[in-house]
Design a protein around this nucleic acid. Structure first.
Lengths: 329, 329
DNA sequence: CTGTTAGCGCATTCAA
DNA sequence: TTGAATGCGCTAACAG
């Protein structure tokens, strides 16, 4: 049977406060008593009840993380970064998949709040106004990773600049028919930033913006695959294709190879994100590396600081990305 | 400020028991009082404190999951399956990465126990004797996914049979120099099962077992890549390579393509697991599909049954796999 | 250095 | 149908 602090106290012939002191490594306990109590703890296999403890001290050493879908590449690495730091600080993490459904986001936010988490990390969340209100109202320390919204602390990269840079790179390599596959209908999403970076690069290079080279897809492999097939059927099609993420880029590669074209000689392909597979496939994908693990780790660090009321230099961390030139371009 | 049950009671002019009854949808409350209390709850934005509740009712609606590393392909899908079912039953999940380090496994198991989780799911755990003892001692409902150990309830697939089948398939296609890349040093791990399936298939087909065609790697891309490079340098090398997982298979593919060989004509490649990328890369990988999502979902279902003391037909669920023939063979 | 006591916020038994 | 009282297991004054 599970024993509690009382059982230990009785068996050790001390009060429960002494047991509590021993468990919490209070320095005031006499060596002798400490040992005596410890012995009983071992014998009984006593484990303190964290729930009871939390109720008393009003902190749970638990944080929640809201993520669109853990089975989408890119997120697991961020989560791993979070978890490593969380573990270091003795936090456990609740994982919640929202499928980018605001209803679910709100629901989970409530559930986490009821479970008294010490903090919450939002990953690539849409952050509806309603959610933002909750965040303010509940006063649970919250940080957003990968997307930015009003005064919520965040860690991101400058996607627009990164996109411009990778398009610049293609232009430098002599391409002037450059297609982009991204989600142009996104409202306040990152994909719009990518499209803007693309446009800016063309403008600066005096390349005419051609709507036929802009494919509005989703985010998945098949969007890249189908987008590329469409582009490759065009009369004066592109010589380079920029897919807004690596999974789509891999779809593009497949489409190109199926048509028997050579990469990068006939068609260059670049992606975004640097998911692990982008280095492993053949040809490997030139891409913008987001420091995924670091984004998670830093996000968690920021969160601990907020939780502990430490002051931070900035609540808006913008990390560096890097351009990885590989076989596909 | 966060309000509690007392605040609500006072403002509504009722006792805390009545508020509690309202919150827990007890049928005995008069309509009128119910509405009155509800109104105050809304006004105050009252959210019940799940920690206090848990302390009282001794269940937390929380489960823990121990996983080697969420950033390894294959695991996120299992986790997603777990989470969907967990969510359905109103459970939240603690995610813990163990890196297959038994020390960490034990640590996390303790932490989860202290946090009073209602159940624990082990994914591809080694399950040391020590851990097994803890599992027995703590009496926390526990199920293992992807690996099997003594009397612990589990959901798995028959890896040995699956391996035999995929090797049979290669033999049927006329291959008789078949290499395998797997972790032969594994003690009680799944890789040994795979090796055994491989051996059995050869034996049945009267193909001599050639140690030079057995590469002991780890589990990662580079193990597949390097293993294949080694194999392809052999005088009488293989005409087909069986990699014990898809990530390694993708490494094999890269090595083969780099050497300018044709897949599947000169070298056939098969993998194991059916991670999503195995269908997306070019050429796509022939593989054994483990029903990852289902394994998670079913594992969670089994767990809820154990938690609720419902009887289950069997504590050892063995799921079907399927052979997916694709471009690499 | 140690023990007594008072809650933390809630569910629940027992009376009313 | 409702309320008063008790205790879940623990921490933290406070007193000794």
């Amino acid at each position: 049977m599970k024993s509690n602090i009382k059982d230990v106290a009785k068996k050790a012939g001390v009060s429960i406060s002494t047991v509590s002191r021993v468990v919490n490594e209070s320095k005031v306990v006499r060596q002798e008593t400490y040992k005596k109590v410890m012995k009983v703890i071992k014998e009984l296999g006593y484990k303190p009840n964290a729930i009871a403890r939390s109720l008393k001290i009003k902190t749970t050493k638990t944080i929640g993380i809201l993520i669109p879908d853990i089975s989408i590449h890119l997120y697991p690495e961020i989560v791993r970064g979070i978890e490593d730091i969380a573990n270091m600080y003795k936090y456990n993490i609740f994982l919640c998949n929202t499928d980018l459904d605001s209803e679910k986001e709100l629901q989970y936010y409530d559930a986490l709040s009821e479970k008294q988490v010490d903090g919450i990390i939002l990953i690539s969340s849409i952050i509806s106004d309603e959610l933002n209100n909750k965040i303010k109202e509940y006063e649970i320390p919250t940080v957003s990773i990968g997307s930015d919204y009003k005064e919520i602390p965040s860690v991101t990269i400058d996607k627009k600049r990164a996109s411009k840079e990778i398009v610049d790179y293609l232009i430098d390599r002599g391409h002037n028919r450059i297609a982009i596959i991204t989600d142009t209908k996104a409202i306040k999403s990152k994909s719009l930033e990518k499209l803007n970076g693309y446009k800016e690069a063309l403008k600066e290079a005096n390349i005419e913006y051609d709507e036929r080279l802009v494919i509005s897809g989703g985010y998945h492999f098949k969007d890249g695959y189908e987008g590329a097939r469409h582009l490759l059927r065009l009369k004066d099609g592109p010589s380079a294709i920029f897919a807004a993420n690596d999974e789509m880029a891999i779809g593009v590669v497949r489409a190109v190879l199926e048509l028997g074209l050579n990469i990068p000689n006939e068609i260059a392909v670049v992606g975004f994100d640097n998911i692990d597979m982008s280095a492993k496939v053949f040809p490997s994908i030139t891409t913008v590396a987001q420091p995924l693990y670091e984004m998670g780790a830093i996000g968690m660090r920021v969160l601990t600081k907020i939780i502990n009321n430490e002051c931070l230099e900035t609540t808006k961390v913008v990390l560096n990305y890097s351009l990885l030139e590989r076989e596909s371009s």
